[in-house]
Design a protein around this nucleic acid. Structure first.
Lengths: 114, 114
DNA sequence: TTCTTATACCTAAAAACATTATGCATAAGA
DNA sequence: TCTTATGCATAATGTTTTTAGGTATAAGAA
């Protein structure tokens, strides 16, 4: 993703992809477009990050893929969430929530000094 | 930090340290203890991550440091937020908030399919 | 028809950072 | 005296992102 957001995206890319795919199978380019759109461009996945991530997740059996034709009449590779992928989505979502809460504990703490 | 939280800590370590130090100068070991305590052990910074991070941040002039004596009567290195560090804290806090909101846009979206 | 843009896939080199595994040293209490 | 907690630090390794390329096609503009 763009470095506009520090390194925050580390570890969240998989979660984003899993979540986006939970709405149904999509091809890579479309996944990236949806992340950009749904986050109002706050999060932008570089292609060099996207495609390796998809391969990685497929290797780990979180996704399956097959070639098909897009609505644009182009050859594209569709990715589909596996049952393990659904499990991962659930687990990583919970982990993210816990992490955000933990960050809040520190960030929302009153400063005792200036 | 512990891998218990995926790779989520990437990019948040600096922010955590900056925030912790905004309460006043502390030494490294104490910084790590406070992060662990305040997050109820959800986030744990490994020493191999902590000390390089402190050096990095000092090089970037976000922190200054000086040797002193801890309340335990031990020689320790105290870190102090610089004005640039305060600026960074403000900026990275805002960035983190934006990122969390962006993640929410995706994660809280209704799934159109099972 | 040719040019440009958006779409769509992919990989390799480099950089950045965390984890893991060390090492060293001292204070305090058992 | 031994162990534990405190406290600093670095090196090797691994993972992932960024950057920077490469290829190809469909559609619309010039």
């Amino acid at each position: 993703m763009g470095k506009q957001s520090m390194d925050l995206m580390r570890g969240t890319l998989d979660l984003l992809i899993l979540k986006i795919l939970s709405a149904g199978s999509l091809h890579g380019y479309e996944i990236s477009k949806r992340i950009r759109e749904q986050t109002e461009a706050e999060i932008f996945v570089e292609e060099g990050a996207l495609y390796p991530a998809l391969r990685r997740m497929e290797e780990r059996n979180w996704l399956t893929s097959e070639w098909g034709i897009s609505s644009n009449n182009r050859e594209v590779k569709f990715y589909l969430l596996s049952s393990e992928g659904k499990r991962q989505l659930k687990e990583q979502s919970a982990q993210w929530d816990r992490y955000v809460r933990a960050m809040d504990c520190v960030l929302k703490a009153a400063r005792s000094m200036a």
